[in-house]
Amino acid sequence: MAPVLVLAAIGLVVVIPLILLAAIPMVLSIGLVVGGLLLLGVSIWAGIEGLAALERWLERDPRFRR
């Protein structure tokens, strides 16, 4: 029974670092997706604010009044 436990321990020493190394790209890709979605949201918000500012400017500028 003891040799089986030794082999299992050796297997864990090999398998656990491989799983951790495989998790690195997953964590990085999740971070990139979250960052991209955040950037998209901020860009949409800035575009809406810019259009609102343009509308306010067009309403106040005498050149555009009828």
Rank of each mutant, 00 (worst) to 15 (best):
G47K: 01
G50L: 08
M1G: 08
A9L: 14
E55P: 01
G36Q: 08
L21G: 07
M26V: 15
I48Y: 01
L58H: 07
I44T: 06
I16W: 06
F64T: 09
V13G: 06
V14N: 01
V6C: 04
E59C: 04
I19R: 02
P17R: 04
I10C: 11
M26A: 15
A52M: 13
I44M: 11
R66K: 08
V15K: 05
I16Q: 02
V42I: 13
L32N: 11
L40K: 03
L18I: 13
F64D: 00
L40N: 03
P3V: 01
V15A: 12
L32G: 01
S29D: 13
A52C: 14
F64M: 07
G31V: 05
L20V: 14
I19G: 00
E59R: 12
I24D: 02
A52S: 14
I16M: 09
A2T: 09
A22T: 06
L21K: 11
M26Q: 11
A22M: 14
R60I: 06
A9W: 05
F64I: 03
L32M: 10
I16C: 02
R63P: 00
G35S: 13
I19Y: 03
M26S: 14
E49V: 06
D61M: 07
I48T: 01
L39Y: 14
L54N: 08
L39H: 12
F64N: 05
R56D: 08
A8T: 13
M26D: 11
L38V: 11
A9F: 04
P25G: 07
G31R: 10
E49Y: 03
V34P: 01
S29Q: 15
L54S: 04
P17N: 05
L54P: 00
V14W: 07
L5S: 06
G47M: 05
R56W: 06
A23M: 15
I16K: 07
L12H: 03
A2I: 10
G36R: 08
D61N: 15
L18P: 00
V6K: 12
D61G: 02
G50R: 15
G11H: 02
V33L: 14
L54H: 03
